[in-house]
């Protein structure tokens, strides 16, 4: 218990550090948000409008950095991340809450599917090392070497253009309104299949190879031979002794990749013009939308932290040796 509290404290501190950095970095950049906004409107703003923008962004008063920082923390606490430039005057929070579900559903699901399938395949391949199963490894190697954007473009060229079975872009049927109805959800699933497949294909090989190699290593451990010598059923030895221990490194890798779901999907969402947070971030960078970028980075940071915290706890649960006693 003490271990969990100590870890929790560590992660809270890290989160605070990340939030603080997130506050200072944009302030070290030249210019200010209003200047950026003026640039965006290419000077077609009159002085009154500029004046009111300064008021809106709270840049009219002479406040110390410390006061700013406290205000920032206070706003953050109330879910206020500022106002986006690109989608002016929509609050960043609103944009993020709109795009996050898309990313989590698409990338989250395909990451989990890729991990589960890849790990299971790795268990099988590792257990049957030295047989025909080894011939599948070069194929896995090949797919793990393909750059994701290329795979995505090829998938679009083949299955959306040459043979139009799937849509090439978007997250849902443009003719439907977002809502909990069959028509919209069906369209969303239909739009999600192609990007999901490409994500699964490009990530699965890594899981297969990692798990397979760990299986080979663990299978030669004495305790696996002991389990065999005990006359345990083959499945029990394979899953209960070999895979149970071999999966440990994959677990932390998986937790980290869950953390990167939010941030690491930029390419996938760009290729498929998918309305997720990666695509938003891409647009924010393109139009120097600092508040949106800041918001997106914050979400990415927090999700990585939460994921690695989960990884720590799951790992401690699965591997008693990592529990620090005391």
């Amino acid at each position: 218990m003490k271990y969990f509290l100590r870890r929790l404290g560590f992660y809270l501190f890290t989160a605070w550090a990340a939030i603080t950095l997130n506050f200072f970095i944009p302030r070290m950049l030249p210019g200010d948000p209003v200047q950026s906004l003026i640039n965006k409107f290419q000077g077609r703003l009159n002085t009154d409008a500029v004046e009111s923008l300064y008021v809106l962004f709270g840049l009219d008063e002479n406040r110390t950095v410390w006061q700013d920082y406290l205000a920032y923390l206070n706003n953050l606490f109330h879910g206020d991340l500022g106002i986006s430039f690109t989608y002016f005057p929509t609050p960043v929070t609103q944009i993020l809450t709109q795009s996050l579900p898309w990313t989590i559903a698409l990338v989250g699901l395909s990451t989990i599917i890729g991990f589960v399938l890849g790990t299971l395949a790795g268990v099988g391949l590792g257990w049957r090392r030295g047989t025909w199963a080894d011939n599948l490894l070069p194929i896995a190697n090949f797919f793990s070497a393909i750059p994701y954007f290329w795979l995505g473009i090829i998938a679009i060229a083949l299955f959306a253009v040459a043979w139009p079975a799937f849509p090439a872009a978007g997250g849902y049927d443009p003719g439907t309104l977002p809502g909990w109805n069959m028509e919209f959800i069906g369209g969303a699933i239909y739009h999600g299949i192609l990007p999901a497949l490409t994500i699964i294909i490009s990530s699965i090989s890594g899981w297969i190879l990692g798990m397979r190699n760990m299986m080979v290593t663990v299978s030669s451990e004495d305790y696996v031979t002991v389990a065999q010598a005990k006359g345990l059923p083959e499945r029990k030895v394979m899953f209960g002794y070999a895979a149970r221990n071999a999966v440990l490194p994959s677990i932390s890798g998986f937790a980290l990749s869950l953390g990167f779901i939010v941030g690491g999907t930029l390419v996938a969402e760009m290729v498929f013009s998918y309305p997720g947070i990666g695509y938003m971030l891409f647009q924010a960078i393109g139009s120097k939308d600092y508040p949106l970028m800041q918001g997106a980075f914050l979400v990415v940071t927090i999700s990585v932290l939460v994921a690695s915290m989960l990884a720590d706890f799951v790992y401690a649960f699965l591997d008693p040796r990592t529990r620090v006693e005391g």
Partner: peptide
């Protein structure tokens, strides 16, 4: 037959017990 009739003692002090 295994374990019931023929059991094996490995170098238990090393890695013969599953650490998890």
């Amino acid at each position: 037959q295994r374990w019931r009739d023929t059991a094996i003692v490995f170098q238990g002090s090393m890695n013969a017990l599953n650490p998890v």
